[in-house]
């Protein structure tokens, strides 16, 4: 049995990726199961989805802790989620990047597939939805299913126009994917394990280790304690404030859903990147055009 974990952001279609892969496998007479992880996190938040593939019937209905393959849909996730956490020794990683993929290779990987999925999605689908694009990269590295089966799954799932565009994106990604194997890999200096920084920042995990005796009566909660949950992780772009144009009107501050604009002593505003989810309302509503949304740098 092969176990795959997809990382994306809420709304990017990680669950659809897992389901399309499963559908393609089922079409080929294989056995497959796809399932999401459920939580309170919403659009933009890091989420994961899972897929199990096998030649035999699958009887497991448990969370996948040690996947063989990890697929990362969004480049901004590498810094905030421990994407390779639990990945098996010699496991495979599929990433969306515009950079030199060698930077993402670590010694115990069995293989790495890299594609600039964001670019392909933007050019063909006109939207930053990278889920089908990443499947092209996945099957390029590991021939789990035929490209044609994936295309059929897409045709069944979407209307013709959308399906054809996705198939086009899938095929282009298949062509443009770069594969790195351990043999290609050159050890780079100073690059630590990718897991460590990610671990500490994974949302709320540290808070969840209560025994029943420690629970307060009625499970009451201290006020304002979500401040421990740094939603800056969700952001793929951030507001850049131009002091020269700012008229200190405060609209950015009042319109922020995440209380992430902070009023300063001199009347200007600053951004609290711990919480800013990068929605862009501030930039859109600024009457002076003093705010620009900049893409988060990857890696």
């Amino acid at each position: 049995m092969l176990e795959i974990r997809f990382h994306g952001r809420g709304g990017q279609g990680a669950v659809t990726s897992a389901e399309l892969l499963a559908q393609a496998a089922i079409k080929e007479g294989k056995y497959a199961r796809a399932f999401p992880s459920f939580g309170p996190e919403r659009r933009g938040a890091p989420v994961s989805a899972f897929c199990r593939l096998d030649e035999k019937p699958i009887n497991l209905r448990t969370v996948i802790k040690n996947p063989h393959v990890v697929v990362v849909l969004d480049p901004s996730l590498y810094e905030v989620v421990d994407v390779t956490g639990g990945l098996r020794e010699r496991g495979h990683l599929v990433i969306n990047t515009s950079k030199d993929p060698r930077a993402f290779f670590s010694g115990n990987l069995g293989g790495l597939a890299a594609v600039n999925a964001s670019l392909i999605a933007q050019e063909i689908l006109k939207r930053p939805i990278t889920n089908t694009v990443m499947l092209g990269a996945l099957v390029r590295m590991l021939p789990l299913v035929e490209l044609e089966s994936l295309a059929q799954a897409l045709e069944e799932r979407f209307n013709e126009k959308i399906a054809q565009k996705n198939i086009q994106a899938l095929k282009r990604s298949y062509q443009e994917t770069l594969i790195l194997t351990p043999e290609d890999h050159v050890e780079r200096e100073g690059k630590g394990e990718s897991g460590e920084a990610g671990d500490a920042r994974i949302t709320g995990e540290k808070d969840r280790d209560y025994s029943w005796k420690e629970l307060p009566p009625g499970c009451i909660v201290e006020p304002g304690s979500t401040r421990k949950n740094l939603t800056g992780d969700w952001r793929s772009r951030y507001p850049l404030l131009n002091r020269e144009r700012c008229i200190k009107c405060g609209l950015c501050w009042i319109y922020c859903p995440d209380a992430s604009l902070i009023r300063k002593g001199d009347g200007f505003y600053g951004v609290d990147l711990n919480y800013c989810k990068g929605c862009g309302i501030c930039a859109r509503e600024c009457p002076a055009g003093a705010i620009l949304m900049e893409k988060e740098l990857e890696g």
Binding site: R208, S211, W212, L215, C219, I220, V221, P223
Partner: peptide, 19 residues
């Protein structure tokens, strides 16, 4: 101020019921 009626993730529901 306190919050009453928070929801429990799967990692805590069992403990809440045990308590």
């Amino acid at each position: 101020p306190i919050t009453m009626g928070a929801f429990a993730p799967p990692s805590l529901f069992t403990e809440a019921k045990k308590a």
